[in-house]
Design a binder for these strands. Structure first.
Lengths: 228, 228
DNA sequence: GCACGCAGGATTGTATACGAACTTGAGTTC
DNA sequence: GAACTCAAGTTCGTATACAATCCTGCGTGC
């Protein structure tokens, strides 16, 4: 409990910290996020915690159930499809723009991102690797200089992390970094069309690596399953 | 002050009511949204008002300035470009999907929407007409059965309303309904490719009807203009 | 013995009180 | 007379208190 006592938390920083934890699967889908619990952990009052949870619920990372509390969201199969369809609409064209605006600093930033991801994987820190791999995508949107689209993509990628937690099938481990390397090459050559194409197939590969058969809905809890 | 006293307001309904008012230009960009003022108007406490303002700030319809208060957002020229670029990424393909899933009920719903818009225009209720014309776009996303994308589009369209308030140039009044009529025909024929194309040019027309030369930044207030 | 009801405990929803920051305008000084 | 200082007033930021709702487990009645 060192970092919690020292820092001056605001609703924004708390929300970011929680989102980070969710993204890294330290807070798996369905986890109850009690207000008192969080307030004590961060050393703040429930007011700030509520604002943070509200923010996360707007990004659909947290589900607020009235008089029941806040829970880390559990995307349905349908949600999963929608998230990746939205990403397919936004990311390829954004990668295209990014390739054309790419500076050398941007390139080295992306390169170091991939390097960190490798480190994390080698150290067995899968959550951290997943987070970094998401950051790679957000960084591309930043480079494309589209803050609005960047916000959407950032939300979609955090949600993707939840989807991966629920629907990832074991096979095919690190095809991820391969695709990112290929994208980096396209960026280095400022080849927008290629980057767009690579991003498109990267996203398709991602969806293909999920198990989205409707039968395997997350069991979560009986009461929820039998709600109606 | 009749509707305010009777209804049982929640943060969601308050936020929706404010968003509606912003969308209809009853609350123009830059309007100060004092917490006490709103709390009294709706007959609730500041707690609910704050939650509503927080929600609107997440949708970038309201700008929260620390220790200063909440103001209806004033999108910059850059924001305006970004919003319409994002719409260009999302809406044409969404219209394509919508055309393919269109039911007869959906069609009549869209038709009645256009009719209401005409009524509003004839009655001189420009704000209401603008709101309805936005609803037309959101409805398309709903028909495409993409709730995630629908959320994004809904946000973008509300922001577009602010942009129109700031940057609309007088000429070319109601080309709007014309484009919507053409879209409706494409939908009626379940012609996805045509709907996609029409939506694309509709959005281009919209941008073209704006005055986005950087020189004419909104003057808002002197103190803001001279901030640095 | 099973099911229903009810009460106690826990958790969230809302309101309010208090403290902090900013704005504003008058007063003072140079 | 102009500019600076400071204090009063206003508005937001945070914490806390109380009310409402829900969950849980025990008791009672059939």
């Amino acid at each position: 409990m060192n970092k919690f006592e020292t820092k001056h938390w605001t609703s924004d920083t708390v929300a970011a910290d929680l989102e980070h934890a969710i993204h890294e699967h330290r807070l798996p889908p369905g986890t109850k996020l009690g207000e008192d619990e969080l307030a004590e952990a961060y050393g703040i009052s429930r007011t700030i915690v509520r604002a943070a949870l509200l923010a996360l619920s707007h990004r659909r990372l947290v589900e607020l159930k009235r008089n029941r509390g806040a829970f880390v969201a559990q995307p349905t199969v349908r949600d999963a499809r929608e998230v990746f369809e939205a990403r397919a609409l936004l990311e390829p064209r954004t990668a295209h723009s990014a390739a054309e605006r790419m500076t050398d600093e941007d390139l080295s930033l992306l390169r170091s991102n991939i390097a960190s991801e490798h480190e994390a994987l080698d150290a067995g820190e899968n959550g951290r690797a997943l987070f970094l791999s998401g950051q790679f995508h957000v960084e591309i949107a930043r480079i494309a200089d589209q803050t609005t689209v960047q916000g959407f993509i950032s939300e979609l990628i955090s949600r993707s992390s939840l989807i991966i937690a629920l629907y990832w099938r074991r096979r095919a481990a690190l095809c991820e970094t391969q695709a990112h390397h290929a994208l980096l090459d396209a960026f280095a050559n400022r080849d927008g069309a290629l980057a767009e194409q690579l991003m498109k197939s990267h996203l398709l590969d991602l969806v293909a690596s999920l198990d989205l058969r409707n039968v395997t809905q997350p069991p979560t809890s009986l009461r929820e399953a039998l709600k109606r």
